[in-house]
Amino acid sequence: MIDIPGWLWAATIVFIVALFAFDLVVAVRRPHAVHLREATFWSVFYIAVAVGFGFVLWAVSGHEAGTEYFAGWVVEKSLSVDNLFVFVIIFARFSVPQEYQQKVLLFGIAGALILRTVLIAIGSAAVSAFSWTFLFFGLVLLWTAIQLIRHRNDEPDVDDNFLVRNARKVLPVTDDFHGGRLLTHENGRRVVTPLLLVFIAIGSTDVLFALDSIPAVFGVTSEPFIVFTANAFALLGLRALFFLVEGLLERLVYLSIGLSVILAFIAVKLLLHFAHEDVSTSVPEIPTPLSLSVILGILAVTAVASLLRVRAHPEEKARAHAVTIRSRTHETEQTETEAAK
């Protein structure tokens, strides 16, 4: 049993809010394009903070809590890399100037953290109340892993998803960014800038990503504090990581395959845990240290294999997965079919 003292909850929440406020000041006080040196510094800083927190948790609550945190953080960090692909696509489709990108990322991350906190609370309540929750999470992750493989070469249509499309219909949208504002006046009327649509696109796609990541981290630990902190510290460094690896993302051609293997492995871990608890104690479980080793091994093999593949075939580029994002092609075909009738 992992013991998380109340003071650690309070201190951690204050620390995370302070980090976000600090990040907000750094990112918003002076809009600018983020270069490699700055991105590297902040990426190393947030990784060091996340790792340091893991050791503090290890010292306060024991090796089991520390191991589960590191496993959960690695899972969330690896899944968040896929978010970066979508961010690249969104910024390109909306032609977001570089000086406004980190502002968008920061507020998008804040929204993601609030959303995931709600989902974590719901997931924790479900895990406590219903023993079959682990079975459900396991099946969801297996389905996601299969879909991720099937659609690994698809590119999501993020700029025309349901919310963005309807926002265009309802709201008066200008083509100018107006200094990074969300709302402005143009020709005597109040209008929204493309930056608001970017926020909507990032927020709506993160809802879908959360449906993968929350069950995945519950496959590593059922402790709400560890689930929350693994998500929080993985998300906090995402802004800097985006600018650091933006040019390298397209080289990770096997990322979708690697992530699908990780999700499938965690799904098996969840299903074995369910069987051990509800069917027979003779069913073996996968220990967390082994899970951490397997996940790190998959990520290492994925990165090395991707770089070797790109070196041999430089024309190949990685794509963001489109597992849960609406396919515009399907809707187009459906419209054409109805028109033909």
Score class of each variant (00 low, 15 high):
L106N: 03
D278Q: 11
V60A: 00
G111H: 07
G52T: 11
L236E: 02
S204L: 05
P156S: 11
L238H: 11
F134M: 15
F136D: 00
L272I: 10
A33Q: 11
G179T: 09
I120Y: 09
E333H: 14
W143E: 08
R239L: 05
V49G: 03
E315T: 14
V51N: 07
W58L: 06
L299R: 13
Y100C: 07
F130L: 00
F243R: 13
A201K: 12
L308I: 11
L36Q: 11
Y100T: 13
A92F: 04
R319M: 10
R326V: 09
A318M: 10
I286Q: 03
I262Q: 05
F218G: 00
L248V: 06
T184L: 03
L135D: 05
F20D: 00
V14Y: 04
L119T: 07
G237T: 14
S43Q: 07
E277V: 12
R165Q: 12
G247P: 14
G237A: 07
F94C: 08
E277Q: 15
G123C: 01
A71P: 08
L299M: 15
E331P: 03
V81H: 05
V294N: 13
N83P: 02
G111T: 11
P289L: 06
T184H: 07
H321V: 08
F15C: 13
T40V: 06
T302R: 09
E64Y: 01
A145R: 14
N153T: 15
I146N: 02
A65G: 08
S43L: 04
R116H: 08
L84A: 03
F53I: 00
S61N: 12
E338L: 15
G179I: 13
K77C: 11
Q101G: 08
F107R: 09
L24I: 01
V26R: 14
I325A: 00
P287N: 08
Q147N: 14
R29S: 12
F242S: 09
E277M: 12
L244Q: 12
F85L: 03
S131T: 10
L238K: 04
L249D: 05
V323L: 02
T229Q: 06
V323A: 13
A145S: 14
V245I: 15
F209G: 10
